[in-house]
Design a protein around this nucleic acid. Structure first.
Lengths: 358, 358
DNA sequence: AGGGAAATTTGAATCGATCCAACGAAAGTA
DNA sequence: TACTTTCGTTGGATCGATTCAAATTTCCCT
């Protein structure tokens, strides 16, 4: 029964090799962490013992407890882990985070989870020096969880006005205003808005009351920016259809069906994300509508994909990578009080917008 | 000088709140880890004390030491961290890894480093239960480092014949053979090979001796597969130009310049990676050569980009995501002895290959 | 009230290292 | 030879939790 194969359990600790080499554990420790202060003869003896016993070097678990610093930052989201590698926005953001981490030698821990309980546990037990929280859906819960860890953390793209959490985002109202302004300047007067979620798990046309009750302030702000500009040029914003999507292809297409069923279809579509905008381009093309001939489309985010679509997408570019870099710096130098930063956005005019042909 | 602002240091430990609540630390611990076995009144008292003292829950650092398991797997590479988010191959692989991790609730730690010393340290001190090692350049060093940690690890795409390390890869010889066979079947007889690195930091035409001395066995195997098939149809393989690239745009273009400077330019290019192949498509198009009219190109890897290029790329697809999934499983169930798995590849015929027009 | 079972609580031991004050030995100085 | 330094080594304290056998309390029943 009892198999005598070598290496059943492997509890070889620093203390073991210290004993084997006939030195104190203090000295053994020094051999690995500050070899230069140990006499060469002793050093070699300890190294030999370690080698002989199959010791893999000081266990970071032990070191960690003493040292306190993990030297890694956690990036948390409520999406599945693959979100980090699939989603264009996330990828650019992660590239920025990577850069900053590489520069300081910090590692990255991806924290996420399928279900909610798992998520809580994963955040509670993440071995990190701080969190960067991706606030997409379920952002507030995530922020709450991160806050409970009492570690430095910053929220990215936070849809909340809670001034007590550090956050890095863009000026959504201004950005949306610039997008709308671009289209009104081109002469457009018939608009439709494809919105990001205002609350969880709902799609469809939204009423002003529903907008006011939005969970996601960022969505509300973008809408505010759009409508403010439209009304500035005398458009009756009450008549502008605002369709709430789930930021995916299905709900976006449903929204387009609804919007273009009108006998007065829009000549310009304001999409609150590039993802929505790109699906829109596809849908319009499949529908036989020309962009920008029949309809102009303006996105929001500035993901790389937007520059290679057909036609290339006019959009409001966020400094995504820069936001990632700043977030890392905010964590590592977690200095003063909570800092909320709002970065500028930039209108990038490409082929998806032109004057209306009417 | 001494600022009396609240919360200078924050050494609030479980023991502190235990004392504050007037219970033993054992009980305090139970309140957090197994609340159901603590009498409600006591539980609330401890919770209240924790709240009052700003205790963020049991520190994972402490728990970790006792528990032993980190519940995270490390993914290591010698490239900068952003490689994980930029490189198409890596992204698909990470998606597979993510999936498997999500399924088991494990986290992912990205381990990498700018310079070599940093790399060693980062691997030595990574808090993980095992490593997945991306063997691109510098693979052997990475494997060595990982092996020293005495943790379960598997090498992905390992360019080595060292049977003592667990590895997951594809049958490079067979895959390359299939690629070549596809082109010879189409009738091609004039070939050129754009190779991955045989050794570090060298590019240019390679001689058979240099091939034999290759550091990277995977590259050598692919070449073997190519040439074996070519000689099968009677082609003098000694005359087939083999240009070693660094798997980047610059060296690939240099290789193309060299190859197409010949007065007998190839009608078919065998590229050892999709990256090389895609650059090739671009270069040929810029040069005014039609693909597949004038030249056929076949890649290797099967990254998503290959399906949307102009023209779409014929390539040898590896089951990239599946490899990632298997790697995670190999780590987590690190069961028997070292397991080396070779997965099958698949020829995907797209628009970049056709019979030679000659 | 008394006895035993069940429910809680306690506190020492442990996880695997690092740090540091103190100590011993070898080398240098007067 | 006596007295400092310098260099290396030692071993106890500590990091922050979890675990578990033993002690204690509570509960139930006769």
């Amino acid at each position: 029964m009892a198999s005598l194969t070598a290496g059943n359990r492997r509890p070889v600790r620093l203390a073991d090799i210290a004993k084997a080499a006939g030195v104190s554990h203090g000295t053994a420790s020094n051999v690995f962490s500050r070899p230069e202060i140990v006499r060469e003869e002793v050093r070699e003896r300890v190294r030999a013992a370690a080698e002989a016993m199959g010791y893999g070097g000081p266990d970071p678990k032990g070191r960690l407890l003493r040292a306190g610093k993990v030297n890694a930052i956690g990036v948390a989201t409520a999406e599945p882990l693959s979100y980090f590698f699939d989603d264009p926005f996330a990828r650019v953001m992660m590239a920025g985070i990577s850069q900053a981490c590489d520069a300081t030698g910090a590692g990255i821990s991806l924290v996420s989870a399928a279900n909610n309980e798992q998520l809580a546990w994963n955040i509670q037990s993440a071995l990190v020096d701080g969190f960067i929280v991706f606030c997409i859906e379920g952002g507030s819960r995530l922020v709450e969880l991160a806050r409970e860890r009492k570690l430095p953390f910053v929220a990215l793209d936070l849809d909340s006005e809670d001034g007590s959490v550090a956050a890095i985002g863009v000026d959504n109202i201004a950005g949306a205003g610039i997008a709308a302004r671009h289209l009104t300047d081109l002469g457009h007067r018939r608009f439709a808005v494809l919105a990001l979620p205002f609350v969880d798990d709902r799609t469809g046309l939204v009423s002003p009351e529903q907008v006011r009750a939005a969970t996601y302030a960022g969505t509300r702000d973008r809408l505010t920016g759009y409508l403010r500009e439209l009304s500035r040029v005398g458009i009756d914003t009450a008549k502008v259809p605002v369709y709430e999507t789930a930021n995916d292809a299905a709900s976006t297409k449903a929204g387009l069906e609804t919007i273009f069923a009108s006998d007065q279809p829009p000549t310009a579509v304001l999409a609150m994300s590039d993802r929505i905008a790109l699906v829109t381009l596809e849908w319009l093309s499949a529908r036989g509508l020309n962009v920008p001939g029949d309809v102009s489309v303006v996105g929001f985010d500035g993901v790389p994909e937007a520059s290679v679509s057909e036609p290339p997408l006019t959009t409001i570019a966020q400094p995504i990578a820069e936001m990632g870099r700043l977030a890392v710096r905010a964590i590592l130098e977690s200095d003063g009080p909570v800092s909320r930063q709002q970065l500028p956005v930039e209108l990038i005019v490409r082929g998806s917008s032109a004057p209306p042909c009417g």
